[in-house]
Amino acid sequence: MTAPVNKKFSAQGLCLLVEDQKVARLFFQNTLKSLFPELQIVAVENLRLAEEWLMGRSQTGNDQPLSLAIIDLGLPDGSGIELIRSLHAAEPATPSIVATIYDDDARLFGALAAGAYGYVLKDDGAARLEEILSRLSTGEPPLSPAIAHRLLNHFRFEAPATPPVESVLTSREVEVLTLIARGHTVQEASQHLKLSAQTVAGYVKSIYQKLHISNRASATREAIRLGLVRNS
């Protein structure tokens, strides 16, 4: 198995926003501008325009980094999963975040398999979506709580006896991984553990490095594999 690509978000580059609904498009534009004022947002409404912009950017040799892509799945001219796959192949360090109303397994795991770095549900509401997207600044992939729970329900199996989790993670990292896998945000985990959010974000980064993973979905799977999260 190849090592996961290290996704890096820079708030000073370009963001490609692909969303066909005007209200949702304006919401994400305004939210991203509020969270990351220096991020330059290119907003398009379908796959064709997104592909044309990416091709034009490539042909002109634009060396400004593509820091982020926010991609809807149900677009009028096709599925955003294909665009995620193309972006992952062409610019593997760029995090692609799904923003959709769909939470079914087919789309969720299809997007993750294509290279999606995060998956947020529009039904979460404005305040929750803003909080989820803000995680990018601390290196935490955005993932809606309902999606974390769906991942838990999907991967139901007993963890193998080896390797023991103590040989992989410190006791504090085990606590952090358990909370993250249960859908807690970094801020919520920090309050639970009575630590600063910056300290918890550092633990999350260390966990990702030790387990050779790059997103919250993978962290949830590893928590199940290591026996940290079980079915009630």
Rank of each mutant, 00 (worst) to 15 (best):
V120E: 08
P141D: 12
S218K: 10
F9P: 04
V44A: 09
Q12I: 01
Q40H: 13
P4M: 09
E19K: 07
A126V: 15
L211N: 07
V44P: 08
R135K: 06
L143K: 07
S79H: 11
D77C: 11
R172W: 00
L169P: 01
R182C: 13
D105P: 10
Y208T: 01
L193K: 08
Q21M: 01
G115T: 10
G110E: 03
I101R: 15
A24E: 14
L177H: 00
T100A: 10
R216M: 13
R25H: 14
L14H: 15
E45V: 08
A161V: 09
G78C: 06
L193T: 00
K210Q: 03
S232L: 10
S232I: 04
S96I: 09
I180W: 02
A90C: 04
F109Q: 08
S171M: 03
S79W: 06
L143V: 12
L68P: 07
S137V: 11
L83N: 04
L54C: 06
T31F: 08
E91P: 01
A219P: 00
I71G: 06
Q198N: 12
T162M: 12
A223T: 06
G80D: 11
I180C: 02
G125N: 09
T138L: 15
T60I: 13
I147Q: 10
L26N: 05
L49V: 15
V200F: 00
V200T: 03
H154N: 05
I71E: 08
V200S: 02
G80R: 04
T220E: 06
R172T: 00
S137M: 06
R85H: 10
L195A: 11
R48D: 07
M55E: 14
K194H: 09
A111P: 03
L16M: 13
S206P: 09
H149N: 11
R230A: 15
K205Y: 08
F27S: 04
A197E: 05
D72S: 02
E52V: 12
L151N: 08
L47M: 12
L26P: 02
A146I: 06
E45A: 14
A197L: 00
A189K: 00
V23F: 10
T185W: 14
L133V: 05
L179K: 02
L75E: 00
D105T: 12
A181L: 05
T220A: 07
R135L: 15
L49C: 15
T162L: 13
R150V: 05
S167T: 14
P145F: 13
E140G: 06
F36M: 05
A50F: 12
Q12N: 11
G110H: 03
P160E: 04
P65E: 08
T185A: 15
A201N: 11
L169G: 01
L32S: 07
A90S: 11
I84R: 03
L129C: 12
L68K: 08
L129G: 10
V174G: 01
R57E: 02
G80Y: 13
K210R: 09
G183M: 11
Q191H: 07
P92A: 11
Q64M: 14
G118N: 01
H88F: 14
I70D: 01
L151R: 05
R48W: 10
E175T: 00
D104V: 11
I41K: 02
S190M: 05
S167E: 07
N6Q: 07
A159P: 15
A50Y: 06
S232M: 02
A99T: 14
V229L: 09
R221D: 10
L193W: 00
N30P: 06
D63C: 06
Q40I: 13
Q64G: 04
